[in-house]
Computed example of a mutant assay.
Amino acid sequence: MDVPVAANILGTIGAVCWSIQLIPQIVVNYRRHNTEGLQPSMMLLWAVAGVPLGVYNIVQNLNVALRIQPQILTFLSLVTWAQCFYYGKKRSFMACITVVAPLLVGLGAIEVALVFALRAANDRNLGWPLILMAVLSACLLAAGVLTHYWDIYTHRTVRGISFLFVAIDAAGDLFSLISVVFEQRIDILAMVIYGTELALWIGIMICGVVYNFIPWAKKDSKTNHTEELQPVSLHEMPSSTSVFRTASGASGSDTVVTRRAPHRSG
């Protein structure tokens, strides 16, 4: 069955977003030399989620971009997970490779085997294995994001996540979701997979505004109206690469800027 041009174009945009989504997070982790606030369980759950998602998209013969997309997700998730080991657990570089490389090969082998198995199941008119793949991928992706909801509830702040990463990932989900709509046969399960994660990321953005941006804006507004010397920690200001970095996620060597009161003559 031919895939409509619109579905291919939108799916490609979604795949590109998913291809680069974790790169800002990886760069932020490298520059900070820590992964505080980033949940390693999220990265591992996403890496595993790429397997059933890839199986589902391939067996369902969705557009090529959506078939490649889960493989990129698994790879970048494992790279980020390795950073959590390297910076968070203080493991050596070789130790990280020793853990990640076999896991990557193992997940790839499992996906290939499941693709052949589910195609055989389809030939026998067995639909439940494919439904199971869709449900499993949706649950794993959602569970990964939900780990950050627990962290937000615990610390009453959004920390450790690159805001650029969140925006790109949400855009990837959105374009992937729309591309499914333009398929010749609308796949409800695929829409549930991408729609669920999109909704969760929108919730993260709202939490960032409520718990981080609004308090910072109010505090900054009060600071601008004072004439006394008052220290302002740079980590209290929103970063262009992280979701309004807070004190709990910043290093102990923050620079302090002082505001001078205007000189009064006489």
Rank of each mutant, 00 (worst) to 15 (best):
P40K: 14
M42D: 04
G252N: 13
M237V: 07
A199E: 02
R32M: 01
L73P: 01
R119T: 06
R260V: 06
L118R: 12
N29W: 02
T223C: 01
F244S: 09
N63M: 04
I58S: 13
L10V: 05
A120K: 14
D173P: 00
M133N: 00
Q39Y: 05
I58M: 06
V27R: 13
L189W: 11
D220A: 14
M191W: 02
V209C: 13
P70V: 08
I202E: 00
R264I: 15
G172H: 12
V51I: 15
V257K: 10
I202H: 00
F182M: 07
I193S: 08
R119W: 11
I26V: 08
A170G: 11
F213A: 07
P215D: 06
S176V: 08
R119A: 03
I110F: 14
D187A: 09
D187I: 10
L10G: 03
L73Q: 14
V135H: 06
F116K: 13
S242W: 04
S253D: 15
L174N: 00
E236Y: 09
Q39G: 03
I9R: 02
W216P: 05
L130M: 14
G208D: 10
S41V: 14
A167M: 15
Y211P: 01
V256N: 06
A167D: 02
M43Q: 10
I188R: 11
H155S: 15
S92C: 04
A190Y: 01
R119Y: 03
A120M: 10
V180Q: 04
T258I: 14
V166F: 04
Y86Q: 04
I23D: 04
S137G: 08
P52L: 01
G208I: 05
I97Y: 02
V115R: 02
S248P: 00
T35S: 13
S242D: 08
T98C: 03
A250Y: 08
P4Q: 12
S233P: 11
T258M: 12
N8H: 10
W81Y: 13
Y149T: 06
G195L: 09
W81C: 02
L66H: 01
L62Y: 03
L177V: 01
C139I: 12
C207W: 12
T35M: 11
M205S: 09
S162H: 05
S239K: 11
G108L: 09
S92L: 07
V64Y: 00
Y86F: 15
T98L: 07
M94L: 12
A250K: 00
T80P: 09
D173Y: 05
L38C: 09
I214C: 07
V209T: 15
S92Q: 12
G14M: 11
E228A: 12
P231W: 05
S77Y: 08
N61F: 07
D187V: 15
T241R: 03
A134S: 15
L107H: 07
G88W: 10
I110Q: 06
G50N: 06
